[in-house]
Amino acid sequence: MPIKRIIQECLEGKEGAWKMLINTYSKKIFNLAYQFSGSYEESEDLTQEIFLKLYNSLSKYDFSRNFEAWLITLSKNHLIDQYRRTKWEKKNRDDSEIHLFAAEKYLTPEEEILSEENKKLIWEGLNYLSSEIRMAVILKDIQGKRYEEIAEIMNLPLGTVKSRINRGRLSLAKILKEKKEIKNGMQKN
């Protein structure tokens, strides 16, 4: 069923429509919350808060707009607001092995080690990015959005979006480089 019809049925209070909406978007929003916050438990609560906000504001949805972009904007605003209130950067991210790499399948043991090590460093490195840059990088490189979509979601000019993503990637690259150099230095010793 097309998404706008599902929304219409939600507004009419039809049985099963809300459940269909949850089934369509819960995974995407939950993963966005998890990638942004770095905490599994926190992201469950955040997801519930986001869908509660969605339920309360569904009547204000403009049917001429792309629903997914509208929902992600709502999610982004909530995640960044909560981040500013609670300052997650002071907390450590979940150990990436617990949730992320349990889902992975590797071809060779070497590939597994290299891949996990890099991913772990980059996952932790996300914590060092500011909320706006972190969100831009997540939307582009993890969620796979186009620059124009991100500009619409974040309500920013295209140039600003590209600049933020570049800065985010640069920061993560420098963190990765630094940590690997430290590790290589320790191994030589």
């Binding site: 949850i22 819960s26 995974k27 939950f30 993963n31 998890y34 990638q35 469950e44 997801t47 519930q48 949730h99 992320l100 790499f101 889902a103 992975e104 891949s115 890099n118 991913k119 980059i122 996952w123 990088v137 490189d141 993890i142 796979g144 990637r169 640069l170 993560l172 690259a173 420098k174 990765l176 480089k177």
Partner: peptide
């Protein structure tokens, strides 16, 4: 390193929503 960052971020898997949360 930037290429590695991009590739690794793209390769981060999606995790399933728990039944409790659903």
């Amino acid at each position: 390193f930037m290429r590695e960052v991009k590739t690794n971020l793209e390769g981060l898997p999606e995790i399933e929503v728990s039944d409790n949360l659903l």
